[in-house]
Design a binder for these strands. Sequence first.
DNA 1: TCCAATATTTAGGTTAGTCTAAATATTTTT
DNA 2: AAAAATATTTAGACTAACCTAAATATTGGA
Lengths: 218, 218
Amino acid sequence: MFSLAEENYLKTIYHLEQESKGGVSTNAIAERMETKPSSVTDMVQKLAEKKMLSYKKYKGTTLTSGGKKIATQVIRKHRLWEVFLVDKLKFHWDEVHEVAEQLEHVQSDKLITRLDAYLGSPDFDPHGDPIPDKDGYVKPTEKKLLSELKKKQRGVCVGVKETSSEFLQYLDKKNITIGTKMQVLGKEFFDGSMIIQVGKDQFFISKIIAENIYVQTN
Amino acid sequence: MFSLAEENYLKTIYHLEQESKGGVSTNAIAERMETKPSSVTDMVQKLAEKKMLSYKKYKGTTLTSGGKKIATQVIRKHRLWEVFLVDKLKFHWDEVHEVAEQLEHVQSDKLITRLDAYLGSPDFDPHGDPIPDKDGYVKPTEKKLLSELKKKQRGVCVGVKETSSEFLQYLDKKNITIGTKMQVLGKEFFDGSMIIQVGKDQFFISKIIAENIYVQTN
DNA sequence: TCCAATATTTAGGTTAGTCTAAATATTTTT
DNA sequence: AAAAATATTTAGACTAACCTAAATATTGGA
Ligand SMILES: [Mn+2]
Ligand SMILES: [Mn+2]
Ligand SMILES: [Mn+2]
Ligand SMILES: [Mn+2]
């Protein structure tokens, strides 16, 4: 029904919409997709014809409900495959994304239904991101950035913002993964850096790190 | 490295080479791929430039060892995914092919290594076809067509030639699957039809059916 | 052998998705 | 409010993979 390129555009536009609440600019799409703005204009016009998004020249785009439907299904597939790779094939969480980028485009309703059941209908992927249900519904999430916690506050790691290998490997080195409990022991006002307690270890993290870890407080 | 179209051509040419022992004609490829001979000529010339096959105008093509390598790897992936779909996701053997056609193009050495291990390094796919190893080696198979058996001979079903849903569903109805033991009770010289014993049932099958079931005798 | 049928290639065109360069619109600065 | 900077679109081209129609080669039968 939709080509690989079309699916990737819809997915990217969906993510950008979530991030910035509102219409998405041509340049933002181009940058995220590592392509040229002129290519984006072409594709956006095509997707507008297909009623997947609304588009006014020079004004940016917004997905229609149809476009959101496609986007969330692709995201659902991406995240379910990531769970498969980590849970069943024992991939490390920092090496599943590229493979999932390919698997997310395989077309088969039955496949995804069965895969979901086989994995035990997981709610989150290995990076803590929620898996949309068959109807594209995503549970509103209750999480904040570690950098928002104050001294003495505790939290449980529920996800990461940055998902590069480098960052995920850093977290591994510090024994931080989904479900890890942590507490802010000290916070430097000047640069936002923190001392945190993880298990029996205490160590220093920069603001950059703290801004890329999602935690749930209770 | 190779596009989806290129992989499909190499795979098809490999299969045709196996079937007819010798160079493969442009028209044979076109027919099998449901495309036009002129398109085949284009692609074959491109693949010849890439040293994946040898090609002399009007004389047909033969895969080089490089081409065979690519082809067998795609076939390996196809068949491993078919095993996954049947063994793990409980697909029926008549509905895995289309999905495997897509999955076979996912590029990741680690994925296929892990998948193979996860499935217990199977030697055959759900249709009884052998799974090439990492080096493309396929065990020479010891099988014959049910239609070649003489009266009174026994055999075990080890595969099927035809893999359409219709045929596979017919086999299911008759309780014939990989591993099923059968014996020829009678054979009609005139049309090649047979009466066979399968479990506690005896029934008539036409020559067409018998020519699409592979058996191993012992 | 030679001709008609068949197989194959070539020529030229199409579509999807990309690009660069140029034109135009919008936004920011002065 | 204009000029300058930035964002976006348009125009024109390119490649991969396909197609149709026409040209050319091969082959099997009289
Ligand atoms: Mn991912
Ligand atoms: Mn993820
Ligand atoms: Mn198959
Ligand atoms: Mn098979």
